[in-house]
């Protein structure tokens, strides 16, 4: 029996990965990375890694003759017994890298720079059709600290969608996406309604000085697939607000044209800076699916 150094390194990496996942779940930071819908899956994954840790533990100490014992039938050589020293070092460093940045750097939420890279939100030229709605939200008591677990029952969903017909539309996080799509699709139906929403200021090229977009990121699966949603808004104060500032706005839905395309526009009545919310992202509602 002897000590296998490389197996020990793998053991360390497994422990570190498990620790990283568990820490993300424990602190709740995981929702900064993936849609809460997938949290359970990720927890199971953490459990599997812990299990593999214990299997790996047995491999750190074993006899030489034992080396292939665990894979008796048809062992392949791809256990990297034969890899060169340099190659091994490089691969362990690569594996270490996300752990370093993961433990070391703070997770941030996406900002307007990323939004810009994702392509334009507002219609450009003629072949495009509109992409600008506004929406109505449920009341503030719905604004729970964890609008994350975005499962609604059919009833709740119908009830919330019903509130779209109220005179004041509040865009709360849990229903944001549905309201957004509804108003985007039928801007005329909602014209004249008052709307209230939070978002960050996003300015695309070609906007007038009195225009800005109040935007949010919509996340389907993980942060990498985030896309921007938001409405063109007009306000005399628009120039005072720099990009990425989080604001709460109150305005009236109007229908206007941008680059020749009809879209909902918010005439802002009131705009105030706010601190970045704890849950900056919007997750699509899941009821309709399941």
């Amino acid at each position: 029996m002897r000590f296998h150094f490389y197996q020990f390194l793998k053991l360390l990496l497994l422990a570190a990965f498990a620790f990283f996942l568990i820490q993300l779940h424990h602190t709740g930071e995981i929702v900064k990375l993936i849609n809460p819908k997938y949290v359970l899956m990720s927890q199971v994954a953490a459990g599997v890694i812990v299990l593999l840790f214990f299997v790996q533990l047995g491999r750190v100490w074993q006899g030489n003759a034992d080396e292939h014992a665990s894979c008796a039938p048809g062992c392949t050589e791809d256990h990297d017994h034969k890899q060169s020293y340099v190659k091994r070092c490089v691969s362990y460093l690569v594996l270490l890298f996300p752990l370093c940045t993961g433990f070391g750097l703070d997770l941030t939420s996406l900002d307007a720079t990323i939004a810009k890279n994702k392509g334009s939100l507002l219609p450009q030229g003629e072949n495009a059709y509109q992409e600008e709605p506004s929406s109505k939200p449920p009341t503030l008591d719905e604004n729970k600290p964890i609008p994350n677990n975005n499962y609604l029952t059919d009833e709740e969903y119908e009830q919330k969608m019903g509130r779209l017909n109220d005179d004041v539309v509040e865009m709360n996080e849990d229903i944001f996406a549905s309201y957004y799509h509804e108003i985007e699709a039928n801007p005329h139906k909602y014209k004249g309604k008052t709307i209230q929403m939070k978002g960050f200021v996003y300015k695309e090229e070609g906007l007038d000085s009195n225009q800005l977009v109040v935007a949010r990121f919509l996340i389907t699966h993980c942060v990498a697939d985030a896309r921007v949603i938001g409405w063109l808004s007009e306000s005399d104060q628009a120039a005072q607000f720099s990009e990425n500032t989080w604001v709460e706005v109150r305005g009236v839905i109007d229908v206007g044209k941008y680059n020749g395309v009809e879209l909902p526009i918010i005439e802002i009545k009131e705009i105030n800076p706010i601190p970045e919310p704890a849950n900056p992202y919007i997750f699509p509602i899941l009821t309709k699916v399941l």
């Binding site: 993300l24 990375l33 997938y38 990720s42 940045t101 997770l107 900002d111 990498a224």
Partner: peptide, 16 residues
């Protein structure tokens, strides 16, 4: 930091 967040989210999403 933005890059790192996207990078980690891709990994965390893919791990399961």
């Amino acid at each position: 930091n933005q890059l790192n967040t996207i990078f980690l989210s891709l990994i965390i999403e893919a791990i399961p």
